[in-house]
Design a protein around this nucleic acid. Structure first.
Lengths: 210, 210
DNA sequence: ATAGAGTCCGAACGATCGGTCGCTATAGTC
DNA sequence: GACTATAGCGACCGATCGTTCGGACTCTAT
C-alpha cells in the first residue's frame, strides 16, 4: 500500500510527526498525546511512528524541544536585533503578546499548559520544562539588568521581580484567550507591560530615558 | 470482607471520594483522575465508587464544585468581613497568596491546572470552569469599583484591567511554587500586589487614602 | 414481618493505551 | 549485483481505561 520511505524522506517523516505532535499536545496536553491517534492522523502505523522515537516519553521530550525552537523563532528572534536593555524588553513583550494572540500553538502556549500538567510529577519531562523556563527567565533578567545599568529602569529594580510579573501578565493573557476567548485581554496585556516597563510609574517619577 | 455501609454512612463515603478526588486531581489533573486508582486508594470497588456519581464526568464536575467551596473558604471567607473596597482587596490577595503558599491543593490551584487542561476542548467541564472564573472575576471587579467610588483607587482605574493583572500575579506565583519550588516568589507576589493596589504608583502621585 | 430503597461488590464488557516482534521493501555502499 | 541498514507495516501483548450488570447486603417504612 504505502511505499517505503527513503532515508532522506525519513527525516521529513520525523518532521511531520513532531510538527503534528506539537499542535496536538497544545490542545490535548503532553499526556493526552496518544501514539495511536497521532499515527492515524499522519497515515502511519503505531509501530512505524514509534520507531522514530522508541518511547512516548522521548516523543514528548522531542515535542518540547521543538516547541522551544518555535517559541524562540516567534518571541525571541523578532526582538533579537533590538538594542539590548529596555528596547529589547519592549520588543520581546510585543512579540510575546503577538505570539499568544495569533495562537501559534492552537491550544495556547505549550509550555504553560505542560507546566501545569507536569508540576505535580517527577521525571525527565518536568526536568526539561524546568530547564527551559530557567533559560528563558535568565535571558529576560539579563536584559533587565542591562536596562538598569543603562539607567532605562530605576536602579533599585529587582530583575527577578520584573520577570515574575511579566510572566504573570503573559499567563493571564494566555488564560483569558484560551478559556474565555476574550480578545480584549490583548490590550490589557499591553497596558500591563507598559505599566511595568515604562516611566509612568517610577518611584522617582523620572522618565526612563534619563 | 468489607462490611456494607448504611445509608447514613453513604454520604460520608461520597464525602471521602470527593475529598480524595480533589487532591488527586490537583496533582494528576482532572483527566488523570481514574476511577480504578481512586477506588483502590479508598478501599472501594470501581463500581461501588461510580455508583455515587454515574459517570466520570459527573465526578469531575462534583470535584470542581467542591474545589470551589474550598477556594471560597480559603480565599474569600477570611476576607469577607473586611471593609468592601481596597481593604477587602488587600485581604483577599493576602488570603489568596497564603492559600497558594500553604498548598491547600497539593498540586497547585486546581482551577488553574484544570483550565489549561480543558481550554482546548468543549463539554460541561470547561463550561463549569468558565462560569466559576467569571463569578470570581466579577466579585473582585465589584470591590475594585467600590474602591474607585471611595477614592481609594484612582478614578480612571479599569476594574477588569486590575483583576487581569492580579490574576496574572497569582498564576505566576502558582507556577513558581509548583514548577520551581521557588518560595521566594511569595514575597515577589506580595510586592506585585502592593504595587498594583497601593499608592506608590498612582498616575497623579496621590496617596489612595485621599 | 415484609417490601422497597439504597449501598456496595465482583465479574465482565469493549475499547484503547504504550510497547514488542518479525517481516518486507527499499536506499545506499561496496 | 550482493550486502547492510533502516523505514515502515501488521499482528499481537498485557495493562488499564470507563462502564454495565446482577446480586448480596443493610437499612427504613409500613
Amino acid at each position: 500500500m504505502s511505499p517505503r520511505r527513503s532515508a532522506a524522506e525519513a527525516r521529513s517523516t520525523r518532521e511531520r510527526i513532531i510538527r503534528r505532535s506539537v499542535d496536538v499536545a497544545s490542545l490535548e496536553g503532553l499526556e493526552g498525546l496518544t501514539i495511536g491517534r497521532l499515527a492515524e492522523d499522519l497515515g502511519l502505523s503505531k509501530s512505524g511512528l514509534l520507531g522514530h522515537f522508541g518511547s512516548k516519553e522521548v516523543l514528548q521530550l522531542a515535542t518540547l524541544e521543538r516547541a522551544s525552537v518555535i517559541f524562540n523563532n516567534e518571541v525571541w528572534a523578532p526582538a533579537a536585533d533590538a538594542r539590548p536593555g529596555l528596547d529589547r524588553l519592549h520588543a520581546v513583550c510585543a512579540a510575546w503578546i503577538s505570539y499568544l494572540e495569533r495562537g501559534v500553538f492552537p491550544g495556547g502556549c505549550l509550555f504553560v499548559s505542560s507546566t501545569f500538567e507536569y508540576d505535580g510529577r517527577g521525571g525527565p519531562v518536568r526536568a526539561l520544562l524546568r530547564r527551559q523556563f530557567a533559560v528563558w527567565r535568565r535571558r529576560l533578567a539579563a536584559d533587565v539588568r542591562t536596562a538598569v545599568r543603562r539607567g532605562e529602569l530605576p536602579a533599585g529594580s529587582d530583575p527577578e521581580q520584573l520577570v515574575f510579573e511579566l510572566s504573570g501578565v503573559m499567563m493571564s493573557l494566555n488564560h483569558a484567550l484560551q478559556l474565555h476567548g476574550d480578545s480584549a485581554a490583548v490590550v490589557r496585556a499591553r497596558r500591563a507591560v507598559h505599566r511595568l516597563l515604562d516611566a509612568a510609574c517610577r518611584p522617582d517619577g523620572r522618565p526612563p530615558s534619563a
